[in-house]
Amino acid sequence: MTEVIRFIIGFFLVVGSFLTLVTAFGLIRLPDVYTRNHAASKSATLGVMCILLATFLFFYMEEGHFNSRLILGIIFIFITAPVAGHLISRAAYNSGVPLWEKSVRDDLKGKQKYEDRNM
């Protein structure tokens, strides 16, 4: 039984660090702020969550120590990471950072017009 749990802990750790690595890779490789934000706000969230979960399981199963702060940390990251991604991309757009040149559509450009029409 403990071997199975150890395997699960190891699995979560490896997946978490792999996802964090992919995030870093995506940050270097992707072309503009917005696509980089995709990588940063998704993979980093799940990566850190997996690592925290593995830490929690390790201390619970091996040491018998139930650390509720790790659970709270997982929840906080889960709630705040998408908001951070949203705010960064919104701030970037509003300060005029251009989209990648291969972008096909930009409806946000029509936002001002839409609001002038409806307000």
């Binding site: 995506g26 490789r29 799940l46 409806d107």
Partner: peptide, 26 residues
């Protein structure tokens, strides 16, 4: 959805060619 999103990000980032077309829709 979080897990699905990560799989799709993996595919996008690790694909050898950057051939996706980003855009903003309402």
């Amino acid at each position: 959805e979080l897990i699905m999103a990560n799989i799709s990000v993996l595919k996008t980032v690790l694909k050898p060619k950057l051939d996706f077309q980003p855009g903003i829709f309402a």
